[in-house]
Amino acid sequence: MKESDVSGESLLSADELISATGGKYIGSAENKNLFCFTSVATDSRNVIGGTMFVPLIGENQDGHLYCPQAVENGARILLIAQSEYEKNGGFYDKLVADNAEISVVTVKNTLKALQDAAAAYVAKFPTLVKIAVTGSSGKTTSKEMIVSVLRQKYSVVYTQGNFNSETGLPLSVFNIRKNHEIGVFEMGMNRKNEIKEISGVLKANFALITNIGTAHIGILGSRQNIAEEKRHAFDYITENGAAFIPAIDEFA
């Protein structure tokens, strides 16, 4: 296992993570006392010392296969599916028995748990001004323009590249730190309810819909359905926030 490189306090405590995800802690009291993670990854290749690894289960791939690699790369926390623990509990029990600094938390669904954990983390920064950017096209360009302006005066955290999906948005918000004043995050979608789900993670004060085009129309069926899904970016706008849409738009 690579030597851990954990600096600073854990992004979430063991109790905060368990409360947010409805998870079950696997390990000793000693492990729990050493519980700490300073980054989050869903790809074992991106794991560094001090990472919480969240293996996702897809149609053709099960991320749990890469838990050993994640541990080798320095993962401190494994957030795994309960079904995986029921199948391979011996591996995880031995892992935490042999490594006091490693903890395992089991959850019903790892994607949902990742989102719930991210939402709990965002809630730890009540003064952060949160801006969401979505739309059928122009999201990344709009985000970069907004960030470029705001960085002239404020400390800004923002989506790197187009990390804006059901997994990308939660991973992005784990980059928030105490010094940040404003967060600017993209929201993309490839399926129905995706914007609704990740809006619940960020709970943006301000949100922008760049446009309503035909991207993903094969999935959602119509531009009207796309507009209704994108509108979920506005679900958590506060009284002192605002929603932005193009002045000239069929769905304005």
Rank of each mutant, 00 (worst) to 15 (best):
N205T: 08
C36G: 08
Y158R: 14
Y154N: 07
F35K: 06
T238R: 11
G138L: 09
E228V: 10
V47G: 00
E101C: 05
D116F: 13
L150G: 05
N99V: 05
F35R: 00
N162H: 03
V104P: 03
T167C: 12
F174H: 02
A118H: 13
E72P: 04
P68A: 03
K124S: 11
N31K: 09
L78Y: 05
S13Y: 12
S4Y: 10
L171P: 10
E3W: 05
A243F: 01
N205K: 12
A70C: 03
K230M: 12
R76K: 15
V184S: 09
D249Y: 10
V104S: 08
G218I: 01
G23A: 11
T167N: 13
G221P: 13
K108D: 11
E228G: 08
A100E: 12
E86M: 14
L12A: 00
V184N: 07
K178I: 09
S142W: 01
L208T: 04
R231C: 08
A252E: 08
A29E: 15
C36N: 14
E239F: 15
A233K: 07
S172N: 02
S19F: 12
E86H: 12
G200L: 04
A204E: 10
V149N: 02
G49I: 09
G213E: 08
Y154G: 07
I77Y: 07
E3C: 06
G74A: 02
A227C: 14
L111W: 07
V54G: 06
I80P: 01
I226E: 00
